[in-house]
Structure formats: structure tokens, C-alpha cells
Amino acid sequence: MRAARIMTISENPTRSFDRADEFTTLDALESESIHIFREVAGEFERPVILFSGGKDSTVLLHLALKAFWPAPLPFSLLHVDTGHNLPEIIQFRDEIVERHNLRLHVAKVEDYIADGRLTERPDGIRNPLQTIPLLDGITENRFDAVFGGARRDEERARAKERIFSLRNAFGQWDPKRQRPELWNLYNGRHAPGEHVRVFPLSNWTELDIWRYIAREQVLLAPLYYAHEREVYERDGMWMTSGPWGGPREGETVETRTVRYRTVGDGSTTGAVLSEAADNEAVLAEVAASRLTERGATRGDDRVSEAAMEDRKREGYF
């Protein structure tokens, strides 16, 4: 008989593993991620999980719940809300938090703009404005380890970062201070005021994420699947109108069947034309793609070749 199954953020019980099963690549990735969560729990005092309601942070939370089941999750969640998030994502975020009785800290970019600590950018993009609220949230709550859902296959700067990534007292990342990570040994040592960013999904790919979502039946926000939406085309991406503005002159709103590969600030994150309405269809679509989800649908990463690395040096995710 199979081992008892665990209920996490899936619609149905998660798949269990026993000796009769073949140990797959997904099992190895899951095992590594769970080991990282448990390592941090034993080594740090106040870890937190960055949770936006996107697919990667949802898989991250699923793994964290699985790592400590049947005990409650020993970490709280932190979301840096730009105020320009798609409404489906915020609704999904709140539903997950309520379902699992989790504690959520929200740092709002809107508050920083309202009181003058931040200034709205001319292009209206708020993703780069997340850095200061994020660092303030970490400092005010004395978080010493911050879990993120970044993966190395997403972008070249993220490919350079270790699983345990030291940040200085100003929250900045210095590539020259990267520590060696031999086998599964992670160095979390840090001075007062410093903290460590931890990336349990570093070795996963977008295809791995979707294969895992399908296997574990992880619930996602519905906009990750094909749906009809009023959109307009900009720079090869299909954008949604919202409080962030748009469309511009010459951009025509039309109803298209689209889905989102990644979610972020609505002013810079686009959808892709797609008929993939379920996990199987999404898997086939992702397997055939030659662009990462950020390369295909994130305008903020197109500012320069070093756009992400520059933001990470300042303290970004």
C-alpha cells in the first residue's frame, strides 16, 4: 500500500513517494528544496517566504507546507505589493493565506509614493520601486532569511546567484562575496544587520515547475490558463488595461484568448496568445518555447542587458 498522503495547497492530496515508485528528477528537485527549507529552519531565527500568488511562489509555499507537515508552517509570508498587480493574483494570494491560516506581511509601494518616500517613475513601471519597501519590511520585522522563488533558468543574473545568497546591511548583493556550495552544504553565517536570501527553486526550470504543478495538482491563479481577455499589443506582448494606464495612441484593445506565463507589475508584464487551458496543454506549450517566461513577457528586463543584475545589487529579489 502507498504511504499516507499529505494535503497542502493542492486541490487533491499530494503524491506520496515510497520504494515502489521510481525516483524521478522531480523527486530529486523536491527533496533538495525540502532539505533547504529544513536547513533554514534549523539555522535561522526569523525566516520569511516572499509570496506574491504567482506560480513560483505558490510552488515554493507548497513545498514549505510539505516540508513541515503535519506541523504548521514555521514561517510567515511577505508580499511587496506594487498596487499595479492584476486583481486575480491578489484575490488568489488572500485565498491561500486564509485557507492555510498563514500570517501575511504586506509592504505597499503605494504607501511610499503617497508619503513621498518614493516617486512614481515617468514610465509608470513600479517593479523597480519594490526594493525599498522590501528592505524596510525585512529590517522592521528582523527577518534574517528570506525565501524567494527565483530560478536560475529565468535570467542570467539569477543564474549567477547561489542558493544561499548573502546580503549586506544595506540589503545589497555583491557577486564577489558569493560563497562556495559544495554538495548540499550551505553557509548561512551573517553579521548583525545582514541577511540571507534563499532560493530553494534555483535548480528548477519552468518546465519542471509545470510538471510539478501537474503531478501535485497545485492550485494556481486562473490567469495562468487560457482565458478571454481584453488586451492590446505592445513590444510583442499582450498587455491589460488597468490603473497603471494604457493603451497608448495607436494601440487597439481587442478580445483575445491569452494566458500569463509570469505575473508582476501590470504596466510591464504581458500575456501570451494561448489556447492552453489545462496543465497538459501548458506543459506542451512550455516544452516547445525557446524563450524564458521573463524574456517573453517582462518589459522591465528589457531595459538593458544588465537590468536584473543592477536591481539585485541594490537589494531587489
Rank of each mutant, 00 (worst) to 15 (best):
A3V: 10
A4Q: 04
I6V: 14
S10H: 08
N12S: 14
T14F: 06
R19D: 03
D21E: 02
E22W: 04
T24S: 15
T25N: 09
L26Q: 13
D27E: 07
D27A: 11
S31G: 04
H35I: 01
R38K: 15
V40G: 01
K55A: 06
L63Q: 04
A71K: 08
P72H: 11
D81V: 13
P87L: 11
P87C: 03
I89T: 07
I89E: 04
Q91C: 08
R93N: 04
I96C: 05
E98F: 10
N101Y: 01
L104D: 06
D111P: 05
D111S: 12
N127T: 08
P128E: 06
I132K: 13
D136M: 12
D136V: 08
N141I: 11
R142M: 10
R142T: 11
A145F: 02
V146I: 14
G149W: 07
E154F: 05
R158S: 09
A159V: 00
K160L: 15
E161Q: 15
Q172H: 07
K176T: 14
Q178P: 00
R179S: 07
L182T: 00
L185I: 01
Y186H: 13
P192T: 03
V196F: 06
F199S: 12
T205G: 05
E206Q: 14
V218I: 15
L219R: 14
A226M: 06
H227P: 00
R234L: 13
G236V: 10
M239E: 03
E249F: 09
E249D: 12
R259F: 12
R259I: 01
R261K: 03
T262D: 06
D265A: 05
T268Q: 09
V272N: 02
L273F: 10
E280K: 14
V282N: 01
L283V: 07
A284L: 13
S289V: 04
D300N: 10
S304Q: 04
E309D: 12
E314H: 03
